[in-house]
């Protein structure tokens, strides 16, 4: 199996897991899926690093594992334990969600389709998949009520971005990459902190309850 095929395959796995994320009702499952997604991403980055021989991508994959697979998951699980909540209810039906997700994927393919990239090893699918992940991530944030899922959506978006960076540019310049990871780390921690804080003050982490400020 050559690298491109492998990449293609991994990208589709990513897309599939992201789709599952959309329909998962159990929060633990969602966090697990997210960790899995990050893991696949780390795998892809190793793959890319091996193919291109650019060393700092190894670093990126290590960071991915540390920050996203371990760190973010840990924070999320911790918060989940603290707030004692497992399932989300009263959501958009699974069918509709999936239909919309399919629409988003179509838009992504449509968007990326006309762009001709000369200089990448990327598979035909990885870029559209990455774009889909970005949009689906936002869709998760829109369609899910719990603050935790907003974090999950955000990390999905970040993963999509990371995939784009990997598959098209072999990663960004080093400084930028570190900056991004740092930001993600701080952002997730901050969001976790605030989700926790909101839970103490509002006695819920349902973001729909946060609607005092309007108009």
């Amino acid at each position: 199996m050559d690298t491109v095929k492998l990449l293609d395959f991994s990208a589709l796995i990513l897309l599939f897991s992201t789709g599952l994320l959309v329909v998962s009702r159990r929060l633990e499952l969602a966090i697990g899926l997210l960790a899995f997604q990050s893991l696949v991403l780390a795998f892809i980055s190793v793959l890319v690093a091996a193919t291109t021989g650019i060393e700092h991508i190894y670093l990126a994959s290590i960071l991915t594992v540390l920050v996203k697979v371990v760190g973010a998951t840990a924070v999320l699980i911790y918060v989940l334990r603290k707030v004692k909540m497992r399932r989300e209810t009263g959501l958009m039906s699974r069918g509709l969600s999936l239909a919309l997700v399919v629409g988003l994927i179509l838009v992504s393919y449509n968007t990326i389709h006309p762009i001709k990239l000369a200089n990448t090893i990327s598979s035909p699918n990885s870029l559209p998949v990455a774009m889909s992940m970005v949009l689906i991530g936002l869709f998760i944030m829109v369609s899910r009520k719990k603050a935790l899922m907003a974090v999950v959506g955000l990390i999905t978006i970040e993963n999509g971005l990371f995939l784009i960076a990997l598959s098209t540019t072999y990663g960004m310049p080093l400084l930028v990459e570190f900056g991004i990871f740092f930001d993600v780390a701080v952002g997730v921690m901050l969001m976790g902190f605030f989700a926790f804080h909101i839970n103490t003050v509002f006695e819920t982490i349902n973001t729909d309850e946060l609607n005092r400020l309007k108009g």
Partner: peptide
């Protein structure tokens, strides 16, 4: 409560946008 809410929205929306 209000400022927490504002902060939460600020972070979420700004981070999504910035992504």
């Amino acid at each position: 409560k209000e400022s927490l809410e504002a902060t939460w929205k600020y972070i979420i929306i700004a981070m999504v946008g910035i992504s």
